[in-house]
């Protein structure tokens, strides 16, 4: 390796690594619905934080489900961060297994604000209906 090539690699390898991580971030944003705040893509403060996303399960209190640190909390946190079909199904399976139910309906909502008419509401991102018989 020539001295010039070595110098070039030393100068640009780390910034290139940063670009690669950003490319991975955008891949996950576009394919897995990853929130812009995370994953090394420097998209923080570009939209309302994903922790304000709301998981809604009719007839069940989500707060009591995730009151303790554990698998349920980590799966629900992942669902807020990456609200996609896979994470919805994982959450639904876990609820069915731990709550002894025949079926479950889980929705994930995100906040929506309008500065023009000064209103704040929620918009459905995705939902899943899962029966025990489908497991």
């Amino acid at each position: 390796m020539t001295e010039k090539t070595k110098e070039y690699i030393l100068k640009y390898s780390i910034p290139s690594l940063a670009v690669l991580v950003i490319a991975i971030h955008f891949f996950f944003v576009n394919t897995q619905n990853l929130n812009a705040w995370k994953g090394g893509g420097y998209g923080m403060y570009t939209g309302i934080h994903y922790q304000y996303n709301q998981i809604y399960i009719p007839g069940m209190s989500v707060d009591s489900l995730i009151s303790k640190k554990g698998e349920m909390k980590s799966i629900f946190d992942r669902l807020k961060l990456m609200p996609n079909k896979t994470n919805l199904k994982k959450a639904a399976i876990l609820v069915l297994k731990t709550r002894d139910k025949d079926s479950v309906h889980i929705q994930i909502w995100k906040p929506a604000i309008s500065r023009v008419d000064n209103t704040y509401t929620r918009v459905l991102i995705d939902e899943i209906y899962l029966k025990n018989s489908e497991l």
Partner: peptide, 13 residues
């Protein structure tokens, strides 16, 4: 990222 976020560029955020 900011330019890609409609919530950011329209001032809602």
């Amino acid at each position: 990222q900011k330019l890609m976020s409609s919530q950011f560029i329209n001032g809602d955020f």
